[in-house]
Computed example of a mutant assay.
Amino acid sequence: MHTKFEIWRKSTRSSGGDNCVEVSFAQDGSVGVRDSKNRDGAILEFTATEWDSFLGGVRAGEFNR
Rank of each mutant, 00 (worst) to 15 (best):
D52R: 09
N64S: 11
S24Y: 00
A60I: 05
F63R: 08
I43Q: 01
Q27S: 15
A60G: 14
G17A: 11
R65G: 15
F54P: 09
I7H: 11
G57C: 09
E6F: 00
D40M: 05
E50D: 14
N19E: 14
G57K: 03
R34T: 03
G61A: 10
W51D: 11
E22G: 05
W51G: 08
G16R: 04
Q27N: 14
Q27A: 12
S15Y: 05
V21Q: 09
A60K: 11
A48Y: 00
V21M: 06
E45I: 13
C20M: 09
S36T: 12
G32Q: 01
R39A: 13
T12A: 14
N64F: 08
G17W: 07
S53F: 04
E45N: 06
Q27T: 11
K37M: 14
F25Y: 13
G17Q: 09
R59W: 10
K10G: 01
S15P: 10
T3H: 11
C20H: 03
T12R: 07
T3V: 06
D28C: 05
S14P: 14
N64R: 14
D28L: 04
R39Y: 03
L55M: 12
N38I: 06
A48T: 03
G56H: 07
F54E: 08
I43F: 03
L44E: 03
F5V: 02
F63D: 08
C20P: 01
F5N: 03
V33T: 08
V21I: 15
T3I: 04
R65Y: 09
G17P: 05
W8A: 01
R9A: 15
K37G: 15
D28K: 09
S30F: 04
V23I: 11
V33H: 02
D28G: 04
A26E: 09
S53R: 11
G17K: 06
V58R: 04
G29W: 01
E6T: 15
Q27Y: 07
F5G: 09
E50V: 05
A42V: 00
G32C: 10
L44T: 07
S30H: 05
Q27R: 14
T47W: 02
S11Y: 06
A60E: 14
K4N: 05
L44H: 11
W51H: 08
C20W: 00
G41H: 06
T3L: 01
G29K: 02
K10V: 13
E6G: 05
I7E: 03
T47N: 01
D35W: 02
D40A: 15
R59K: 15
R13C: 12
N38E: 12
E62Y: 05
R34G: 13
F54L: 15
H2N: 13
S15E: 09
W8K: 02
D28A: 01
S15K: 09
W8D: 13
H2I: 06
V33N: 03
G29S: 11
G41N: 08
R39T: 14
E22C: 11
S36L: 08
L44K: 03
R59F: 13
E45H: 02
A42Y: 04
M1P: 07
Q27G: 09
D35Q: 10
T12V: 10
K10Y: 02
I43S: 02
G41E: 09
L44F: 12
G57T: 06
S14N: 12
R13M: 13
S24V: 03
G17I: 05
A26C: 07
N64C: 08
N64W: 00
M1W: 00
A42N: 11
E50H: 06
H2P: 15
R9Y: 05
S30C: 13
Q27V: 08
M1R: 08
